[in-house]
Amino acid sequence: MRDLAVLFKGNNLQRLLGGLGVTLELSLVSVALSIVLGLLAGVLMTLKNPVVRAVMRLWLETVRIVPQLVLLFLVYFGMAKTFNLQLSGEAAAVIVFTFWGAGEMGDLVRGAITSIPVHQRESSAALGLTRGQTWRFVLLPQAARRLIPQAINLTTRMIKTTSLVMLIGVVEVLKVGSQIIDAARYDAPQGAVWVYGAVFFLYFFACWPISLAAGWLEKRWA
């Protein structure tokens, strides 16, 4: 219990929160890019063109099957060796998480669009709405209601996955935590349990409200 104090010693708490900032910044940049690219990808995934479909399918299966950590290694170490492209850890992280997130987001968009019954489209046509009006007033509002809760859930998954970037040398909250523990090895030998416990709850309090919002919207719009 005595070693709990290590959390508040000097500017340790500030450093941990700064690390959390790096985590959130990386994930929010990736989420924003994923949303933009994912919307595009989702529309492409609904197309009937066999070539487009095959390419999209291959992309989606790749990001679903290859672990994110492997993708990080491929981009961070693989690119450097093969193409002599020295990316920073942060840049590699944003590339990988966007590649992954846009694929997953695309699939959610595809699911949301195709889940709308055909009769909605047909009824709109029968009512004399133009194509643009059908999308604007009938299809998009319904698709958005299905999409938004799931997209929010994807955001929490991306925030959690950001913890992997410490393994390619980015100093984020977990890495700051282990630095604090190492520095206080003699003053606070039991520091690890408190610092990693604190990191655990920092992640929890970053993701939990987002998960709650997703659950609430899902129930409200079901």
Partner: peptide
């Protein structure tokens, strides 16, 4: 369920592997 779903496995592992032995 809320705790487990909203925290990364890597952090859980560090707590178990590096944290718990200290107590």
């Amino acid at each position: 369920i809320e705790l487990a779903r909203n925290t990364p496995l890597l952090v859980q592992l560090f707590f178990l592997y590096f944290g718990l032995p200290k107590i």
